[in-house]
């Protein structure tokens, strides 16, 4: 058997791939579910914090800035490990999925709050005053005048950050989440062949290359003309 055949036999073993293909697909769905949950909770929480911050309550704002800084500074894996291995000491036993979901949501919340907040402050003060002078309330001004302009500015950095954080779903494999990497790793140890890892890698590419391309498109589409 030549080197090439051995290489194919090792990394692209058709029999092993056929055997573990369904597991990887199961993992793909877990990854998609996890990523979608993180995006929704993380962005909603981030926007909520940014809006709360716009009310200008000083003590509350210090709290927000501290929380944001904390989750920007901590590595996501550290937060996951802390929740998964730490909370059981308080008789709260979160699953790996919940630990990863909560951790990545907190991280996305922190990053998106910063971006939303920067977007809100970027809208000129005259816009506020003009809207208020037409009789709109604080909430109405925020919702109909400021937020639409702020969101437009925030879309490119937000998209890129969200993509980067959803890729962190692979960290779930460390706390036994059966997402793509977790499924692929256990398939490798069961079959003693790395082909499931090749499949897993392909699954990630299928999932994320369109997302990265979309991010690139968003960047040019919403680029701020100076």
């Amino acid at each position: 058997m030549g080197n090439w055949d051995r290489f194919i036999e090792t990394f692209f073993n058709a029999k092993v791939m056929a055997r573990y293909w369904p597991d990887i697909v199961d993992g793909l769905w877990v990854t998609i579910g996890l990523a979608a949950s993180v995006v929704v909770t993380g962005l909603v929480a981030g926007l909520a914090l940014a809006l709360l911050r716009s009310l200008g309550w000083r003590v509350v704002n210090w709290g927000i800035v501290l929380v944001v800084d904390l989750f920007r500074a901590l590595p996501p894996l550290v937060i996951i490990v802390l929740i998964y291995f730490g909370l059981p000491s308080l008789d709260i036993v979160p699953s790996g999925f919940v630990s990863t979901w909560v951790s990545l949501s907190l991280v996305l919340m922190a990053f998106s709050e910063e971006i939303f907040w920067a977007g809100l402050t970027a809208v000129a003060k005259g816009q506020w005053e003009a809207a208020r002078s037409t009789g709109l309330g604080f909430g109405q001004t925020l919702l109909w005048v400021v937020l639409p302009q702020a969101l437009r500015i925030t879309i490119p950095p937000l998209t890129n950050r969200t993509i980067a954080i959803t890729k962190g779903t692979a960290l779930g494999s460390v706390v036994a989440v059966t997402e793509i990497l977790g499924q692929a790793s256990s398939a490798v140890s069961n079959s003693y062949n790395p082909s499931p890892l090749t499949l897993g890698a392909a699954a990630y590419l299928v999932l994320f290359i369109p997302v990265v391309a979309f991010g690139r498109w968003v960047e040019t589409r919403f680029a701020w003309r100076r």
Binding site: S173, V174, L197, F208, V212
Partner: peptide, 23 residues
């Protein structure tokens, strides 16, 4: 660049660490 941006770093690391020894 897009390839390596789409690839979660942990997957890349595991591939190198747990996959290549088979070769």
């Amino acid at each position: 660049v897009d390839f390596f941006r789409a690839f979660p770093p942990l997957v890349l690391l595991i591939f190198l660490y747990a996959g290549l020894p088979f070769a």
